[in-house]
Simulated assay, not measured.
Amino acid sequence: MSVRQFESTQTTRSREADVSDVQAVVSTGKGRPVEVVTIKVPDPGPGEAVVRVQACGVCHTDLHYREGGISDDYPFLLGHEAAGVVEQVGEGVTDVAPGDFVVLNWRAVCGVCRACKRGRPQYCFDTHNAAQPMTLADGTPLEPALGIGAFAEKTLVHAGQCTKVDPSARAAVAGLLGCGVMAGIGSAVNTGGVGPGDTVAVIGCGGVGDGAVAGAAMAGARRIIAVDTDPKKLSWAQDFGATHTVNAAEQDSVEAIRELTGGFGADVVIDAVGRVETFKQAFYARDLAGTVVLVGVPTPDMTLDLPLLDVFGRGGAIKSSWYGDCLPERDFPMLVELYQQGRLPLEKFVTEEIALDQVENAFEKMHHGEVLRSVVTF
């Protein structure tokens, strides 16, 4: 066969394979159980990539999508904490290539918005997603969770959402950096600026909170106080480096944190719950000129009432943390390397590995606090 005939054959095959039919988890309406259905994934267009998903964590954000807490643009293609291998790339893609092992991210920075131009790409205000839709079998467009949609055998993303990491890392572990664990680690390291010798308190010890505990430990904090109402979660927090625990169902959190910090309060207090009550606890549990970080996501109906004099009088900083203020291309490879070196216990976040048709059951376990992360593996 001549080169021209070979190229012609390849072009014909490409046209015949414009769309892949794969199995995926879809949410069709508020509160309805999710379904495993066949969806159509188009070949990548300019700037896009198709990734064969190897693992995807079950995150609270996916449950928020199912419950209508993000938007009402059903049907949703759920899943976003994912790792896999690039299968195809579209025109103009140079940063990743077929065969690359990647963690997917939902902050593919644009490089031209006002945040990017000021050298703060971690706050990019115009992040990229794939231009083409993935669809149901009947052609109905799907809204992918956080622009990813990775409870699927394959997914279509913007190539900038693919971050290359060490291919020897286990996908079920590395993929968790795609959302909750990164949000937690980053809330301590990037947003909170935790450093050697600091005292840190983390309120709420689920996946995000334990990520914050792990991040604080990695940064060299000398005292890390984990706060929760669930003894099981407090035990988990100790696995990630918490030096002290406070059961908020049995004692006043603010008083307990102060008692454990010489009466002063912690240098950095991280609210990984995102409720008015826990934010106030974080605010009053910090030292003078300390830092409060809100990484737990509140609901739209929540409002905060604080004496303005207290805000002024305590000084310091009150910050919200978006995605742990991470820059995926900087943070993902570094954190995977630390995991590979045994310095960051990412594997401890994986409570169980499940099949695609067990996502609904995983939501139930998550709701009852039975797991840190269920991870779908393919």
Score class of each variant (00 low, 15 high):
291 T>G: 01
103 V>Y: 10
213 V>R: 13
197 G>M: 14
53 V>E: 04
281 Q>E: 08
66 R>H: 02
180 G>K: 01
369 G>N: 02
91 E>T: 14
44 P>L: 08
173 V>H: 04
211 G>W: 10
97 A>H: 15
334 M>S: 12
174 A>Y: 01
192 G>V: 07
378 F>D: 04
114 R>S: 14
242 A>I: 05
234 L>M: 11
74 Y>C: 07
112 V>E: 15
204 G>V: 09
159 A>K: 01
37 V>W: 12
220 G>E: 04
263 G>H: 05
244 H>K: 13
324 G>V: 05
20 S>Y: 04
312 F>V: 15
350 V>N: 03
319 K>H: 11
17 A>M: 12
274 G>W: 07
336 V>M: 08
89 V>K: 11
39 I>L: 06
284 Y>W: 10
205 C>L: 14
375 V>H: 04
143 E>M: 10
329 E>T: 14
20 S>N: 10
80 H>A: 09
344 L>F: 15
370 E>W: 00
10 Q>L: 15
315 G>S: 08
238 Q>G: 09
261 T>A: 07
150 A>M: 02
129 N>K: 12
326 C>K: 00
129 N>C: 12
40 K>E: 15
283 F>K: 02
363 F>W: 02
231 P>C: 11
73 D>E: 15
92 G>K: 07
238 Q>N: 03
102 V>H: 11
213 V>W: 08
304 L>H: 06
262 G>Q: 07
231 P>M: 13
335 L>N: 08
122 Q>V: 03
84 G>Y: 06
34 V>E: 00
99 G>P: 05
136 L>F: 07
136 L>I: 08
221 A>V: 07
183 A>M: 03
317 A>T: 13
346 L>A: 08
375 V>L: 05
165 V>F: 00
36 V>I: 06
65 Y>M: 01
347 E>S: 12
290 G>K: 10
285 A>N: 07
188 A>L: 06
166 D>M: 00
38 T>H: 09
208 V>E: 05
150 A>G: 04
357 D>Q: 05
219 A>Q: 06
376 V>M: 06
350 V>A: 07
130 A>W: 05
276 V>W: 00
127 T>V: 14
318 I>M: 15
84 G>H: 08
271 D>F: 03
62 D>Y: 01
46 P>F: 06
304 L>G: 06
18 D>G: 12
99 G>V: 04
12 T>V: 10
331 D>V: 03
155 T>R: 04
147 G>T: 00
156 L>C: 03
255 E>R: 13
304 L>E: 10
177 L>D: 03
